[in-house]
């Protein structure tokens, strides 16, 4: 019998620690998931194209040494850069969650997948410390991001990072991201207004929490959707009448997109 399940590749390196939650989330959405160490992918570079979705999960790749995501970003850019760019430009979904977002930004796949040049960064939180809590996010409904369809205007997800402050190379980039509807998520108060610390956990410029490329298939975000796929994962069970959390919608969107 031919397996028609959508195939997901979760890339793993030393320090990755969210791959199992992410695998569970995709499997909950009906996908087939493989966690593959980067060294195996380097040996068989074309193996990536056997998959429909590529995931750079959260964690602390290479111990966050030098700066978060930097070493893995360089490794991917220099060794697998052509393959990953081709994967992105083919329209297949790619997601970078937290540390994965830092990698996508620092290797330049976001916000412009065709250029692969770093034009923004995720820098130390304004608080100077690791921030770990549930926060509110405003979904930019005009965005063409394939990952965030069918989400309500305000959602809640957990964040856990020390370097999540989105900084563009110049203010023109923010204008371009807004014009192209590439800003997907912004930190928000519960009622959708501009939040203060700690609801804005890092001081991101324009309160940016997640962006996508122009095509909408490459998505990076600091919050962890894989940690809220079941309603019971929320600390105050505020969505307990529903079976699933908002995070599941994110993964389901990508799986449905590939069917």
């Amino acid at each position: 019998m031919i397996n028609t399940k959508v195939k997901v590749l979760i890339l793993r390196v030393a320090g990755t620690n969210c791959e199992y939650e992410t695998k569970f989330a995709f499997e909950l959405c009906g996908a087939h998931v493989d966690c593959l160490h980067i060294n195996k992918l380097i040996v068989t570079k074309t193996k990536m194209f056997e998959y429909d979705i590529l995931v750079l999960p959260g964690g602390f790749s290479y111990g966050d040494d030098i700066s978060s995501g930097k070493v893995l970003a360089n490794e991917l850019k220099n060794i697998l850069g052509d393959q990953i760019r081709k994967f992105a430009l083919s329209g297949k979904p790619i997601i970078g969650i937290c540390n994965g977002f830092q990698v996508l930004v620092k290797m330049g796949l976001l916000p412009y997948s065709d250029r692969c040049d770093q034009v923004s960064t995720l820098y130390y939180n304004d608080s100077g410390q690791f921030e770990c809590r549930w926060i509110y996010l405003r979904i930019e409904q005009e965005s063409n991001c394939i990952w965030t369809k069918n989400l309500p205007n305000i959602i809640t997800l957990p964040v856990a990072h020390g370097e999540g402050k989105f900084i563009p190379i110049n203010i023109q980039l923010i204008d371009d991201l807004n014009i192209n509807h590439q800003v997907v998520l912004r930190y928000s108060s519960q009622d959708g207004n501009i939040p203060d610390y700690p609801l804005n956990p890092n001081g991101s410029i324009s309160r940016i929490a997640g962006i996508c490329n122009k095509q909408g298939n490459v998505f990076g975000l600091m919050p962890h959707p894989e940690r809220y796929v079941l309603a019971l994962q929320h600390p105050v069970r505020n969505n307990v009448k529903e079976e699933y959390g908002y995070g599941k919608i994110v993964f389901q969107n990508a799986v449905n997109f590939c069917k």
């Binding site: 290479y62 111990g63 040494d65 030098i66 930097k70 070493v71 360089n74 490794e75 220099n78 060794i79």
Partner: peptide, 15 residues
Amino acid sequence: DTVAETVTKAVKDLG
């Protein structure tokens, strides 16, 4: 010095 070890690895990634 774990960061130094990572730098040594990452320098090789740069070719």
